[in-house]
Design a protein around this nucleic acid. Structure first.
Length: 882
RNA sequence: GCGGGCGUGGCGAAAUCGGUAGACGCAGCGGGCUUAAAACCCGUUGCCUUUCAAAGGCAUGGGGGUUCGAGUCCCCCCGCCCGCACCA
């Protein structure tokens, strides 16, 4: 790509002048800073000044992980947020637009292992670097509210929250399975397990049981689900994903007494109506009953081990045949004491869902059907479609290979026969309840949130393990529990665990020797409340100044990536409820408006050997074909994909800003693609943005016609300036609406369209000249949220001393939106045959007559009879003739 | 397998109360300015028929339907993308 050299304007003449962004952008940034334009915390308590009566508006972009380098995704994300922040500020809102760092996490530990640098040092240096990289973008951020989650001033509050959650019964500890890398002696996150092997060591991952801390998100499952309906400014897609993730299903718990034993098998089903079609029971390989049987039955133990081996790779699960092992036990059918069902251990039953046990009804569940076929178990139809012949239907189903899962009526089901599915469910549940053999229940797919991580670089869990008192909370006056600085990463495992002194403490209860919890919190913990901490980031004794969170929350517009659709957003919704129940704040939903932006993509390149090449290694040869820049060897271009280091198709924002300036980068980010869709980065796209900025700059720096003085009075009669004035007001209305709905691409198109109209405008006189200046000033004001530096530059070129950012957002004059005449499309039989200019208020007869008189219309209707003329005022005339 | 989304010029896209499809931009083509190039400016650009003009035909993944009129609503089919994935 050719980087334009910014030069001083050369004045009118043969060479067009160029906008010098290198001078201008830092200049306006300094002015904004000097005038404290983005400050929002005058008292230090998070609240606005007493006299400030503006309504509040909280705009937030998901805070970044401090990797050390900003990437194009950041530029897009923060540009969008900045447009919203600047737009709302101009509209008279008191805007909160903060920035912080999601600073705990694995990459810092990897850096420590690979380069021997301390995670804290690495993280803090990255933060400093990234702050510097954000600065040239000209974002309207209140940096005074900056926070970093890895600092004790931040995480001490979440330790207190953890203890409050404990008091509220929202925290518990239980054994849970983790992915264990036997070489690194470390726990792996799911995404670090690739094909059942550790990503770093390649060693087969083991499943180990560890006691871990859980947060009871399921306590709020019902509410988290139902409240989704109130989030009307969230994308449907995200709400749907959360809906599915929570996965509510209504059904029943059914108890099957075990023949010859005192205990019973507890089963969850959504189809109690098919109980008469049961032909077996099945339990998970992890079910306690399975373990019990395995103790005395080596074959059962072998089968269970077999099941455990499976289950790492998704593909294996997909292809796995349904397998079962007969336990020798028989379950008694709850509706018929004479009826016995064999009990199997089955590889397709999940311990984590429901009760870890099912009853199988092959006729009406495909999995059960497959299982029954394999093991030769009976298949008995107990539901038939309403219009089917029950006997024939049952025969066909039992001979076929597919279960029937649709609605219908009960057959072969005793007292249920003839009832619909829904009625039959109710009837069965009632009958079971009478004999205490079952009950209606609601089951969720959502599981409790396991927050323990066997890691160093995270927030310490404030608990002490005492051999006599058990898990004891760290007394609040001893918070924060801080991470030790003197740690080594030269050996595998968790440095906290093997630290010589850190974990050794005395029990707060009995004073005996005890040991600190060495697990740290999942990093989703920090991001579940940072948006609230931003409301009063400087208060010390408490997490929040209650008045400040009451004032600022909820976040009016949250912007971030779709990858956080479920976990981060669901955890934050949970946290907000839990914090409310602990008295921290007073609302349930933290994010009123949510917007998920698309990714930045770029074409990918490979050399002849299939190695990825970065865009700057690729150029076009003389024949236009892609070649390697230095070696001249052929290069093949692949499809456009999300920018990623592994595919080497990234573009460095710093290089773009250096070559074209921040406004060009911002403009390109907002142009062309709708913000929720992926954006393709192209060289020609950024060139186009840069070209437009210069055009705009020239309108003010080198005007074709001299402009009247600033603040010149508006002439009573705009004369020939009226059409441009109308176009301007349509633009004001359109752009305001676009920005309100975050439709940045159409706002850009509209402003460019008006620029075209402005340049084509050649009327002369006082009226037109006044409109010219007015239009240019308004154009600067409308552009300011998107390209703030150039907008200020234009404003200044137009002779204003006071910053543009302090001027109000323009409002349109509704009278100027309606034209005196309108152009109607004229159709004959639905096909366009001409156009008609008529007065806006022309009556139907006049329009009809004029339309029928159009030469093209008479030609088309010649020899036909006009049956009907449809007139849609202001839009269209359709002549129906045959 | 289940759920959701999307298919519009060479490309990114507009047009969502059913009313002139292709705004705005990218790329292309022709021209101007220039010693030359860049930059900049002007014109042009969905496809087809037509020497020009005028006009006409075809076009929003494919097929059918509703309607005076369908990118938009309904039904069927095809393709791509995303989420979940033995959730009983």
């Amino acid at each position: 790509m050719s980087a334009p050299a910014a030069s001083a304007p050369t004045g009118p003449g043969k060479t067009a002048g160029r906008y010098n962004f290198r001078h201008s952008e830092p200049h306006w940034q300094e002015r904004w800073e000097a005038e404290k334009c983005f400050q929002s915390d005058p008292n230090g308590d998070g609240l606005p000044a007493k006299a400030d009566s503006r309504p509040k508006y909280y705009v937030l972009e998901m805070f970044p992980y401090p990797s050390g380098r900003i990437h194009m995704g950041h530029v897009r994300n923060y540009t969008m947020g900045d447009v919203v922040a600047r737009f709302r500020r101009a509209q008279g809102y008191n805007v909160l637009h903060p920035m912080g760092w999601d600073a705990f996490g694995l990459p810092a530990e990897n850096a420590a292992i690979e380069r021997g640098v301390h995670p804290g040092q690495w993280t803090r240096r990255n933060i400093a670097d990234m702050r510097q990289q954000f600065r040239p973008l000209g974002l309207s951020i209140d940096w005074d509210r900056e926070l970093s989650t890895c600092e004790p001033e931040y995480y001490r509050h979440e330790q207190a929250m953890f203890l409050d959650f404990m008091d509220k019964g929202l925290v518990y500890r239980k054994e849970s399975t983790v992915n264990w890398d036997p070489v690194d002696h470390t726990v792996l996150a799911n995404e670090q397990v690739i094909d059942g092997k550790g990503w770093r060591t390649g060693a087969p991952v083991e499943r180990r049981k560890l006691a871990q801390w859980f947060l009871k998100i399921t306590h709020y499952a019902e509410e988290l689900l139902s409240a989704l309906e109130t989030l009307d400014r969230w994308p449907d897609k995200v709400r749907l994903m959360q809906h599915n993730w929570i996965g509510r299903s209504e059904g029943a718990r059914v108890f099957f007494p075990l023949a010859g034993r005192d205990d019973r098998l507890e089963v969850f089903t959504t189809r109690p109506d098919t109980l008469y079609g049961a032909s077996f029971c099945a339990i998970s390989a992890q079910h306690p009953l399975a373990a019990e049987i395995a103790e005395t039955n080596p074959e059962a133990a072998a089968f269970i081990a077999d099941c455990a081996r499976l289950g790492t790779s998704e593909e294996a699960i997909e292809k796995a045949e349904k397998k079962g092992f007969f336990t020798g036990l028989e379950a008694v059918h709850p509706l018929d004491p004479e009826w016995r069902l064999p009990v199997y251990i089955a590889n397709f039953v999940l311990m984590e869902y429901g009760t870890g046990a099912i009853f199988g009804c092959p006729a009406h569940d495909q999995r059960d059907f497959d299982f029954a076929r394999r093991l030769g178990l009976p298949i008995r139809a107990v539901v038939a479609p309403r219009d089917a012949d029950p006997v024939a239907f049952a025969a066909e189903l039992e001979a076929g290979s597919e279960a029937f899962t649709g609605d219908g009526v009960a057959i072969n089901s005793g007292f249920l026969d003839g009832l619909g599915v829904a009625e039959a469910k109710r009837a069965v549940i009632d009958r079971l309840a009478e004999s205490a053999l079952g009950e209606g229940t609601v089951q969720f797919r959502l599981r409790d949130w396991g927050v323990s991580r066997q890691r160093y670089w995270g927030c310490p869990i404030p608990v002490i393990h005492c051999p006599t008192c058990g898990a004891v909370p760290v007394p609040r006056d001893q918070l924060p529990v801080t991470l030790p600085e003197d740690v080594e990463f030269d050996r595998p495992g968790n440095p906290l665990d093997r630290h010589p002194t850190w974990a050794k403490v005395s029990c707060p209860k009995c004073g005996g020797a005890a040991r600190r919890e060495t697990d740290t919190l999942d990093t989703f913990f920090e991001s579940s409340w940072y948006f609230a901490r931003f409301c009063s980031p400087k208060v010390e004794g408490q997490a929040f100044n209650r008045a400040a969170v009451d004032y600022w929350l909820p976040v009016d517009q949250y912007i971030g990536g779709i990858e956080h659709a479920v976990l981060h957003l669901l955890y934050s919704r949970f946290f907000t409820r839990a914090l409310k129940d602990c008295g921290y704040l007073g609302l349930e939903e933290p994010f009123k408006g949510l917007f998920t932006q698309g990714m930045i993509c770029h074409e990918t390149y490979k050399d002849a050997d299939g190695r990825w090449l970065s865009p700057d290694q690729v150029t076009r040869g003389e024949d236009g074909a892609l070649v390697h820049r230095t070696e001249g060897t052929p290069v093949s271009a692949g499809r456009s994909e999300k920018m990623s280091k592994s595919k080497r198709n990234t573009i460095d924002p710093a290089a773009i800003i250096e070559a074209y300036g921040a406004d060009a980068a911002r403009l390109f980010m907002l142009s062309d693609s709708p913000p929720e869709r992926d954006l393709d980065w192209t060289d020609s796209g950024i060139e186009g943005a840069w070209r437009y900025l210069n055009r705009l700059w020239r309108l003010a720096a080198e005007p074709a016609t001299p402009l009247p003085a600033p603040n010149a009075p508006r002439p009573d009669d705009l004369g020939d300036g009226l059409p441009l004035m109308r176009a301007l007001h349509k633009t004001i209305a359109g752009v305001s609406d676009d920005l309100d709905r975050l439709r940045f691409n159409t706002a850009v198109a509209r402003l460019r369209e008006f620029t075209n109209a402005y340049e084509a405008f050649d009327a002369a006189g006082d009226g037109p000249d006044w409109v010219r200046r007015h239009a240019l000033e308004t154009l600067a004001r409308l552009w300011e949220p998107m390209i703030p530096h150039l907008a200020e530059e234009l404003w200044s070129l137009l002779g204003h001393e006071r910053l543009l950012i302090h001027t109000d957002w323009p409002t349109h004059d509704p009278a100027l939106l309606v034209d005196d005449t309108v152009t109607l499309a004229v159709q004959v039989n639905g096909k366009l045959r001409g156009q008609l200019d008529v007065a806006r208020d022309a009556d139907r007869q006049t329009i009809e007559a004029a339309a029928l008189a159009l030469p093209n219309v008479t030609a088309q209707t010649a020899g036909k009879t006009v049956r009907k003329v449809i007139v849609v005022p202001g839009r269209i005339v359709n002549v129906v003739a045959n």
